[in-house]
Design a protein around this nucleic acid. Structure first.
Length: 506
RNA sequence: GGCGGCGUAGCCAAGUGGCCUAAGGCGCCAGUUUGCAAAACUGGUAUUCGUGGGUUCGACUCCCACCGCCGCCUCCA
């Protein structure tokens, strides 16, 4: 079976077929960079990251475009609307571009930590003013837009398909409209594509209609088509952007070029807190930096970035995710279980030379061979289950359950000294492909010792472990337990095993 | 008011007509192991899927009604 994806445009789950046999073009609405990324961004971009990773796993050559909105995103659609970036910049006493650059870097830093692959192209809206002006020109030429006093509006009445993505019609929208209508608009449903700039507006550019700036929806139309052509395969974004943002993108691009804009629309659901959407406006967001450092009042501890990733993957991308510390804590425990198993596995693999049985003097018997065949069969079944889940509109929850199956298998194999190296290698390969390449949960670092700091720490903890071992030998358990308790307070857990005492951070 | 979605164990969550007397994770309980722990492994933890009707040989899954919750219709991943 091939990949089935839910297409918001047709409201059906469809078999995914790219325009070109082996290539996929995907555009995802990126962040407006006027603040640090929060957990809502994590859900969105981890979800699309997995989509891109899985498409590559399936063998497609993917071009992944994700824009950076650094201009034109207004605080609201009314006349008083202010540019979000400019507003934040004034508050922080920075040039808007300086602020945008700062938060762009912050964004990539957080996404790198979440192990999201970088987009192939990260176009900035401010770097594509010419393309946007060109698009406005075409709309005016074709009569889909009109100019009033230096601003240009899209004429919704000329585009009958307006509303096809979000499933609404113009009359309905007007009935529930909560926003003040600009007197410049011919029709209240019309939307701005280019805005005249007041003299004190910092971000402005010359255009055939005077000094002004592009509106938010315009950039995605211009940039997606510039890099992916029209039509292109997949457009992704948050559900809340179906309307008006994506609806307007469709109107602009299809009106201008006369062909379909996007074949498959993929929308991910929201992160909520206490049942309410996490968002900038409500101010109820937890930034990723806060989550990683544990510095938010709702958090009981600092969380590893990949625990956040695990949390996102534990539910479906089209389901809302109600955030709670307990939920993230549970995800963290689950993530640790997986990474601990992989670490043990890789440590064991590194310790035994190629081609040798795991323990000297224990050659793999015929019985061992049978066991190996059974395990290889199990691995094959795991892979099939994983692919079926991912093919079913990216069921990452089930995909993760396959990883947990592998964890149990791994731990059992590691307990059995007779397990051959090649069996362990096969399990490791499965972790690398499914857990690493596709889900991005299993990383290279899972096997490595860590940096300089970690080595120093390892020595220090080693000294204490040795002291505790002496105490244990002398049956001074009170002292042994005291050392363990002190280390526990410092976030270091000791584990006694047959090969001596190991430590790990909590 | 219009449009869309959700309600599955203590918590998170998959399943959406018979393989469901319902995956997986967290938590909890017990066993193995341990000086005691931790980790790991094994077993247990929903006869039931918001409530009430209906369709069907058969419903968590389809239909209707009701209750509760959420998103969009300004900006938001």
């Amino acid at each position: 079976m091939d990949l089935q994806l839910y297409n918001s445009l047709t409201r059906r789950t469809e078999e995914f077929r790219p325009l070109l046999e082996d290539r996929v073009g995907i555009y995802v609405c990126g962040p407006t960079v006027y603040g640090h990324a929060h957990l809502g961004h994590a859900k969105s971009y981890v979800s699309f990251d997995v989509l891109v990773r899985y498409l590559r796993y399936l063998g497609y050559r993917v071009t992944y475009v994700q824009n950076i909105t650094d201009v034109g995103h207004l605080t609201d659609d009314a006349d008083a609307g202010e540019d979000k970036i400019a507003k934040a910049a004034r508050k922080e006493r920075k040039h808007p571009m300086e602020l945008a650059e700062y938060y762009t870097r912050s964004y990539f830093e957080d996404m790198d930590k979440l192990n999201c692959v970088r987009p192939d192209i990260s176009p900035r809206a401010s770097g594509h003013i010419i393309e946007q002006i060109e698009l406005v020109k075409i709309l005016l030429e074709k009569g889909f837009a009109y100019e009033v006093n230096g601003s240009v509006y899209f004429d919704v009445s000329r585009f009958p398909d307006y509303g096809k993505l979000s499933g609404r019609n113009v009359e309905e929208m007007l009935a529930g409209a909560r926003v003040e209508v600009s007197p410049e608009k011919r029709n209240p449903a019309d939307f701005a594509v280019w805005k005249k700039a007041e003299p004190n507006h910092i971000m402005q550019w010359p255009s055939p209609w005077g000094m002004g700036y592009p509106c938010w929806h315009l950039e995605c139309s211009a940039m997606s088509t510039k890099y992916l052509g029209q039509p292109f395969d997949i457009h992704g974004g948050g559900m809340e952007n179906k309307f008006p943002h994506h609806e307007c993108e469709i109107a602009q691009s299809e009106a201008a070029h006369g062909v379909q804009f996007v074949r498959t629309w993929v929308h991910n659901n929201m992160v909520t807190v206490d049942g309410q959407k996490m968002g900038k406006s409500l101010g109820n967001f937890i930034t990723l930096k806060e989550a990683f450092a544990g510095t938010h009042e709702k958090l009981s501890r600092a969380y590893e970035p990949l625990a956040v990733r695990q949390l996102v993957l534990s539910s479906h991308y089209r389901s809302p995710l109600d955030f709670s510390d307990a939920g993230l804590f549970a995800a963290h425990s689950g993530y640790q279980k997986i990474s601990e198993a992989v670490r043990s596995l890789r440590k064991q693999l590194a310790a035994v030379p190629q081609g040798e049985p795991r323990v000297e003097g224990v050659p793999p018997s015929n019985r061992g061979q049978d066991a190996r065949d059974t395990i290889l069969k199990q691995l094959e079944e795991a892979k099939t289950k994983f692919e079926e889940a991912m093919n079913d509109d990216l069921n990452t929850s089930v995909a993760l359950s396959v990883l947990f199956d592998l964890v149990r298998l791994t731990n059992s194999l590691l307990e059995n000294k007779k397990t051959a190296r090649e069996t362990l290698a096969a399990v490791n390969e499965m972790f690398t492909k499914l857990g690493g390449d596709v889900l991005g949960i299993v990383t290279e670092e899972s096997a490595q010792a860590g940096g300089v700091d970690e080595k120093a720490l390892d020595k220090l903890v080693g000294i204490l472990i040795a002291q505790r071992a002496e105490a244990r030998k002398a049956k001074d358990f009170a002292r042994a337990d005291a050392i363990r308790a002190k280390l526990d307070e410092a976030g270091i857990v000791l584990e006694d095993g047959p090969q001596g005492t190991q430590w790990r951070s909590k």
